[in-house]
Design a protein around this nucleic acid. Structure first.
Lengths: 166, 166
DNA sequence: TTATTAATATCGATGCCTAAAATATCAAAA
DNA sequence: TTTTGATATTTTAGGCATCGATATTAATAA
């Protein structure tokens, strides 16, 4: 649209920009929302429970799997690399919140499990965490949140189709 | 709702969870979308241009401000700490993509600016970057993207009201 | 059995990121 | 002028995250 009055030299680039900028703005807004919320949660986890978000996330995975998880399983579910899981687990072990046990089936592998204290501690934090999220989304109407949920499902599948096929 | 048939001992917690879980799921879905897209972009920037996302983001800020920006301005706009900006800028300087100049007005401050090569290099990358974003959102309809944009505005202001008042 | 290939986890190097402390400068009050 | 408080940046220490390399174990093939 409006090809006229656009300098010929930068035509392609200019048109690409003006046609696609809305998607870029949409992406930047998505990013801004996520960062805003994530930074808030990260900060409160730190000040109120003296824990980091990655550690909280790892514990959340273990809470859902009382039988414990292998390092590789954690890596897959948290969508991070194995080396990363090694480091976070090390920290949690020294804090007494999780334990590494040898797998009876596979001597290469460990089973990571919450300790009783880890479980107790996590439940407290999870309750607070959920309230924070409710608070952060509280300015939106019930219906708007439902719409957002559906639209994000579309976005996820759209992006996954592109990103998935590396 | 449905107070009956809920064990008394965990009543509060259970109800809180069942009532608020939708918001939690909504948040996790938001996070999943963002991570999916961000990781894809990060990976392509790396493989196709051998640059990291933070460096790209810093250059993007400078491109919009041809007169250059102070370190503190960059920090604010990128929503990261000053120490971080120092490190990223150092890298870009050694790569010859940006320069630090003394501020004529304020001897405490630096002005960071793109070099000609930095500007040339950034424009190439930005064009590709925009196409990737268009691709990633391409599975959504025009109207859906518009709705999403509006709903995210609501979310942003809702979250900012909570997160802003530290 | 032996050799090969794949899977599991760790380690080292590198980069991003923050919070807190240190350094330098500015601007205005005493 | 000197002090005081605010501002701008860097430095330091620690945690998070990736990649590539490595050691061990498992599973499979010869």
């Amino acid at each position: 649209m409006s090809k006229k009055s656009v300098p010929a030299a930068s035509d392609t680039e200019t048109r690409a920009t003006s046609e696609h900028a809305p998607d870029l703005r949409l992406w930047l807004r998505t990013l801004a929302c996520t960062n805003l919320i994530e930074n808030h949660i990260r900060s409160r986890l730190r000040t109120e429970f003296n824990i980091t978000l990655p550690r909280f996330d790892l514990m959340a995975q273990l809470e859902r799997s009382p039988q414990g998880l292998k390092m590789g399983e954690l890596s897959k579910r948290m969508m991070v690399t194995g080396g990363n899981v090694t480091g976070i687990t090390d920290q949690l072990v020294t804090e007494g919140l999780v334990v590494r046990e040898d797998s009876p089936k596979d001597r290469r592998a460990y089973i990571v499990r919450l300790t009783p204290e880890g479980r107790r501690s996590f439940r407290k934090m999870a309750e607070a965490h959920e309230m924070w999220v409710v608070e952060l989304f509280g300015g939106m109407g019930e219906q708007q949140r439902g719409q957002l949920y559906e639209l994000l499902a579309q976005l996820k599948s759209s992006a996954a189709r592109i990103a998935g096929s590396k």
